[in-house]
Design a binder for these strands. Sequence first.
DNA 1: CGAATGACCAAGC
DNA 2: GGCTTGGCCATTC
Length: 113
Amino acid sequence: MKVKPEIHPRKPASSTYFSRVYALVRRIPRGRVATYGQIARALGMPRGARTVGWAMRAGDEKIPWHRVVNARGGISVRPTPGYREQRARLRAEGIRFGRDARIDLEKYGWRKV
DNA sequence: CGAATGACCAAGC
DNA sequence: GGCTTGGCCATTC
Protein backbone atom coordinates (compact mmCIF):
# COMPACT_ATOMS: atom_id res chain seq x y z
CA MET A 1 0.00 0.00 0.00
CA LYS A 2 1.12 3.33 -0.82
CA VAL A 3 2.49 5.59 1.80
CA LYS A 4 0.91 8.92 1.64
CA PRO A 5 3.27 11.80 1.59
CA GLU A 6 2.76 14.03 4.53
CA ILE A 7 1.15 17.29 3.86
CA HIS A 8 3.89 19.26 5.42
CA PRO A 9 3.41 22.75 4.31
CA ARG A 10 6.32 23.67 2.20
CA LYS A 11 8.11 26.60 3.54
CA PRO A 12 6.04 29.74 3.60
CA ALA A 13 6.86 31.49 0.45
CA SER A 14 9.04 34.44 0.94
CA SER A 15 9.15 35.42 -2.65
CA THR A 16 8.05 38.47 -4.46
CA TYR A 17 5.44 36.81 -6.58
CA PHE A 18 3.68 35.39 -3.61
CA SER A 19 3.83 38.70 -1.89
CA ARG A 20 2.23 40.27 -4.87
CA VAL A 21 -0.52 37.70 -4.81
CA TYR A 22 -1.10 38.32 -1.14
CA ALA A 23 -1.22 42.04 -1.65
CA LEU A 24 -3.93 41.65 -4.22
CA VAL A 25 -5.93 39.15 -2.24
CA ARG A 26 -5.96 41.51 0.69
CA ARG A 27 -7.73 44.04 -1.46
CA ILE A 28 -10.71 41.83 -2.13
CA PRO A 29 -13.59 43.55 -0.39
CA ARG A 30 -15.71 41.83 2.18
CA GLY A 31 -18.64 40.01 0.66
CA ARG A 32 -16.87 39.60 -2.65
CA VAL A 33 -14.83 36.84 -4.21
CA ALA A 34 -12.16 36.60 -6.88
CA THR A 35 -11.03 33.63 -8.91
CA TYR A 36 -7.53 32.26 -9.13
CA GLY A 37 -7.38 33.03 -12.80
CA GLN A 38 -8.60 36.53 -12.24
CA ILE A 39 -5.83 37.24 -9.79
CA ALA A 40 -3.29 35.61 -12.05
CA ARG A 41 -4.30 37.87 -14.92
CA ALA A 42 -4.15 40.93 -12.73
CA LEU A 43 -0.57 40.04 -11.93
CA GLY A 44 0.38 39.55 -15.53
CA MET A 45 0.25 35.76 -15.50
CA PRO A 46 -2.82 34.98 -17.56
CA ARG A 47 -2.07 31.29 -17.34
CA GLY A 48 -0.62 31.16 -13.91
CA ALA A 49 -3.71 30.42 -11.93
CA ARG A 50 -2.08 27.39 -10.37
CA THR A 51 0.67 29.51 -9.02
CA VAL A 52 -1.89 31.66 -7.29
CA GLY A 53 -3.31 28.54 -5.72
CA TRP A 54 0.13 27.82 -4.40
CA ALA A 55 0.47 31.15 -2.85
CA MET A 56 -2.70 30.38 -0.94
CA ARG A 57 -1.51 26.98 0.03
CA ALA A 58 1.81 28.31 1.18
CA GLY A 59 -0.51 29.80 3.68
CA ASP A 60 -0.45 33.14 5.25
CA GLU A 61 -3.30 33.44 7.66
CA LYS A 62 -3.35 37.16 7.52
CA ILE A 63 -4.95 37.25 4.14
CA PRO A 64 -8.60 36.66 3.26
CA TRP A 65 -7.76 33.49 1.39
CA HIS A 66 -11.34 32.37 1.71
CA ARG A 67 -12.38 34.98 -0.84
CA VAL A 68 -10.50 33.20 -3.58
CA VAL A 69 -12.47 30.56 -5.44
CA ASN A 70 -12.10 28.71 -8.70
CA ALA A 71 -13.45 29.80 -12.06
CA ARG A 72 -16.71 27.96 -11.54
CA GLY A 73 -17.41 29.78 -8.34
CA GLY A 74 -16.67 26.70 -6.30
CA ILE A 75 -14.37 26.05 -3.42
CA SER A 76 -11.29 23.98 -3.94
CA VAL A 77 -9.44 22.20 -1.17
CA ARG A 78 -12.36 19.92 -0.60
CA PRO A 79 -10.96 17.04 1.38
CA THR A 80 -9.44 19.36 3.85
CA PRO A 81 -10.91 21.08 6.86
CA GLY A 82 -10.23 24.30 5.07
CA TYR A 83 -13.20 23.67 2.86
CA ARG A 84 -15.78 24.00 5.57
CA GLU A 85 -14.04 26.93 7.03
CA GLN A 86 -13.90 28.75 3.75
CA ARG A 87 -17.56 28.19 3.10
CA ALA A 88 -18.50 29.28 6.57
CA ARG A 89 -16.52 32.47 6.26
CA LEU A 90 -18.04 33.36 2.93
CA ARG A 91 -21.53 32.74 4.17
CA ALA A 92 -20.76 34.91 7.15
CA GLU A 93 -20.07 37.69 4.69
CA GLY A 94 -23.44 37.31 3.10
CA ILE A 95 -22.43 35.19 0.16
CA ARG A 96 -24.92 32.54 -0.81
CA PHE A 97 -24.13 29.22 -2.34
CA GLY A 98 -26.20 27.52 -4.99
CA ARG A 99 -27.22 23.90 -4.89
CA ASP A 100 -23.93 22.76 -6.27
CA ALA A 101 -22.06 24.71 -3.66
CA ARG A 102 -21.29 27.31 -6.21
CA ILE A 103 -21.20 31.06 -5.94
CA ASP A 104 -22.78 33.34 -8.47
CA LEU A 105 -19.73 35.15 -9.75
CA GLU A 106 -21.84 37.61 -11.67
CA LYS A 107 -23.21 38.77 -8.40
CA TYR A 108 -20.39 38.35 -5.93
CA GLY A 109 -17.39 38.53 -8.20
CA TRP A 110 -14.91 41.26 -7.51
CA ARG A 111 -14.73 43.53 -10.52
CA LYS A 112 -12.08 45.87 -9.24
CA VAL A 113 -9.43 43.88 -11.03
C1' DC B 1 19.71 22.22 -13.49
C1' DG B 2 16.07 18.47 -14.10
C1' DA B 3 11.98 16.57 -12.02
C1' DA B 4 8.09 16.97 -9.19
C1' DT B 5 4.24 19.59 -7.19
C1' DG B 6 -0.45 21.71 -7.11
C1' DA B 7 -6.31 25.52 -3.12
C1' DC B 8 -6.26 26.06 -11.77
C1' DC B 9 -8.39 26.39 -16.50
C1' DA B 10 -10.21 25.59 -21.07
C1' DA B 11 -11.28 22.33 -24.34
C1' DG B 12 -12.95 17.78 -25.73
C1' DC B 13 -15.98 13.48 -25.23
C1' DG C 1 -23.95 18.78 -17.22
C1' DG C 2 -20.01 15.75 -15.62
C1' DC C 3 -15.51 13.42 -16.21
C1' DT C 4 -10.82 13.37 -18.51
C1' DT C 5 -6.69 15.45 -20.74
C1' DG C 6 -3.16 18.54 -21.64
C1' DG C 7 -1.04 22.83 -20.75
C1' DC C 8 0.56 26.40 -17.44
C1' DC C 9 4.01 28.33 -14.41
C1' DA C 10 6.51 29.69 -10.06
C1' DT C 11 8.46 27.30 -6.38
C1' DT C 12 10.80 23.33 -4.14
C1' DC C 13 13.95 19.46 -3.72
